[in-house]
Design a protein around this nucleic acid. Structure first.
Lengths: 128, 128
DNA sequence: CAAGTGACTTGTAAAATGCAAGCTACTTGT
DNA sequence: ACAAGTAGCTTGCATTTTACAAGTCACTTG
């Protein structure tokens, strides 16, 4: 039997209706937020992400960029056709993850000795 | 050759000195923050975590509780010896993850349709 | 005293990750 | 002009992590 259209949905992509769980379904892994962080730091190209100190494997990077785009958090823009070369930008929805990164940074600065505090993070370029 | 003791360390557990990466090294997966959320919601026992709507596998739950304890984010307290039965509490360090959860909740409420907003989250019981 | 409960552990299959290599279409040096 | 890069990926395969089911242990309750 089909669900009535008045029912609140959520499912299909998410384990539960909990906001924390839903966010973790999207960015809950070791790499996704590293890419988002790099976008906040002004990086836009595959090679720039790859060159970050965490040395993300290229197949995982490619996969994460696709997932982030599919989720509407980033936008891919081609700046040349042949060979195809693209740059990635945060959408406003993606940029709205900023407070999560800030909260992580503040926790780390307080509880993990030796983290390097990046002085001022430029406000990211948004493309919707 | 040994490193001089004046060198800034970080390594060994962390991919880089970036605060975001360091936090992700600790809580960067699908389940860890679900446990932390439950602790914020006043849950303390294995069975209570297990009963959450996300239905976390028991072996993973057991593993995450150990890791969180080893990282100093939670404390395990036995309330009976035989059979051994324990309750888990956030330490002040663990409770300091609160702002990260809040930021996730706020993002989800804005961008994911249908998430259920938990009205008021009680301030958690801390054990250091 | 049989059945149940809480808190786990173990086994095994499925999925995600990590590493190295390969590929394509330019671009640059000599 | 021809070899050697460079950027941005994809593919294959070994290793690791996760998921699901089942089992264990020591009580507790009917």
């Amino acid at each position: 039997m089909k669900k009535s259209s008045t029912e609140i949905s959520i499912p299909d992509d998410h384990r539960s209706a909990c906001p924390v769980a839903c966010v973790l379904d999207i960015v809950g892994d070791k790499w996704t937020l590293i890419v988002v962080r790099d976008l906040f730091l002004g990086k836009h190209r595959f090679g720039e992400f790859q060159a970050s100190p965490e040395a993300m494997p290229t197949n995982i990077l490619a996969g994460r960029l696709k997932r982030l785009e599919a989720a509407g958090l980033i936008k891919k823009e081609f700046y040349q056709d042949n060979p195809p070369r693209a740059e990635y930008f945060l959408t406003s929805q993606g940029a709205a993850l900023g407070p999560i990164l800030i909260a992580m940074r503040e926790w780390a600065e307080r509880y993990i000795p030796g983290v390097v505090l990046v002085a001022n993070i430029p406000s990211p370029e948004i493309r919707d």
